[in-house]
Amino acid sequence: MSKTKDNEAPPVIEINAEWCKGCSICIEYCPQDVLALENGIAVVVNLDDCNRCQLCDYRCPDYAITVK
C-alpha cells in the first residue's frame, strides 16, 4: 500500500551519489525500509512505502539525500 494520499504527488527522493559515502545510516533507520545499499551507495528500492518523514535527510551526514 502506498503511503501517499490520493490527492498528493508521490515523494521524490533524490540521492547525490557523488556525496554519498555509503555509511548506511539512512538505510538502517528508515522506518519504512525504503532504501538499500548498492555498490556502496544508498538507493531507493521501495518508494511506495515512503511517508516523507525525512529522517533519512535529518540523519544523512553528507547532504546526499533529500525527500520532497
Binding site: 557523488e18 556525496w19 559515502k21 555509503g22 555509511c23 548506511s24 545510516i25 535527510d57 535529518y58 540523519r59 544523512c60 551526514p61 553528507d62 547532504y63
Partner: peptide, 18 residues
C-alpha cells in the same frame, strides 16, 4: 566545497544540518 571532509558515518554533518 562538498563532499565534506568528514569520514563515512561521522556525526558532524548531521549536527551541522541540525
Amino acid at each position: 566545497k562538498f563532499p565534506l571532509i568528514w569520514c563515512a558515518g561521522c556525526g558532524h554533518g548531521i549536527i551541522m544540518k541540525a
